[in-house]
């Protein structure tokens, strides 16, 4: 009987250079010839939770305060908390060891509900504006900030992590079922800018610098 594995909905058609198994997930750390960027990285194996409660401000998930206003984000200790609305926030694990699943009923594990992608590097926003009318460069918004709306016509949660003249970085989640078409749409839009898939190591290096 084949070993039990957890599979990401994303498969990049690239030769894998380095991979490993973590919590039953087979994770690609590096692909051959990833190039200088921009890069698209599959983070679907990274844990994600929804936290929802009428008294949301009373919660401090993983000892981090939830931002007050919808659209605001907090990135601390490898965890990103995104305030979605009055009663709801999403929590994305980006770096470090995977934390335990919170026991409180306010939390719902949504790791398997969405595909989780990172798009970063030069021309990242030029790629994004081919797929979405969302305003990634809104001058009054300081990274990280959350946008909720269509990307490639699919409802998404998008966090702008980096917004500089040289480099852009966004994290994106949408319904898991759209994974294949979403990746295809992003890679197609990014072809003219040299967008290539990259492994988790490229993401970790980038997020570490932020």
């Amino acid at each position: 009987m084949e070993p039990i594995t957890r599979r990401s909905p994303v498969v990049f058609d690239r030769p894998v250079k380095n991979k490993h198994i973590r919590d039953n997930w087979e994770i690609v750390l590096e692909y051959d010839n990833e190039g200088p960027g921009p890069h698209l990285v599959d983070l679907s194996h990274r844990s994600r939770w929804d936290i929802q409660d009428n008294q949301l401000d009373g919660y401090r998930p993983f000892q981090i305060s939830i931002p007050q206003a919808p659209g605001q984000c907090m990135f601390k200790g490898g965890l990103l908390i995104n305030r979605m609305n009055r009663t709801q926030a999403s929590i994305w694990h980006l770096a470090g060891d995977t934390p335990d699943v919170p026991a409180d009923p306010a939390y719902t594990d949504t790791t398997d509900g969405t595909v989780f992608l990172a798009l970063f590097g030069k021309n990242g926003f030029a790629i994004a504006q081919k797929l979405s009318a969302l305003d990634f460069l809104e001058p009054s918004s300081r990274a990280p900030f959350l946008l909720q709306g269509p990307f490639a016509h699919v409802p998404c949660q998008i966090v702008v992590m980096e917004k500089t003249a040289e480099s852009a970085g966004i994290l994106l989640t949408c319904s898991r079922g759209y994974a294949r078409d979403m990746v295809h749409a992003i890679l197609d839009a990014g072809r003219q800018f040299g967008l290539l898939p990259a492994g988790e190591a490229a993401f970790s290096n980038w997020i570490e610098k932020l």
């Binding site: 490639a152 898991r176 295809h184």
Partner: peptide
């Protein structure tokens, strides 16, 4: 446009 036919696939 680029016409990405976005549809969902099951695992």
């Amino acid at each position: 446009g680029a016409y990405h036919d976005m549809c969902k696939r099951t695992p």
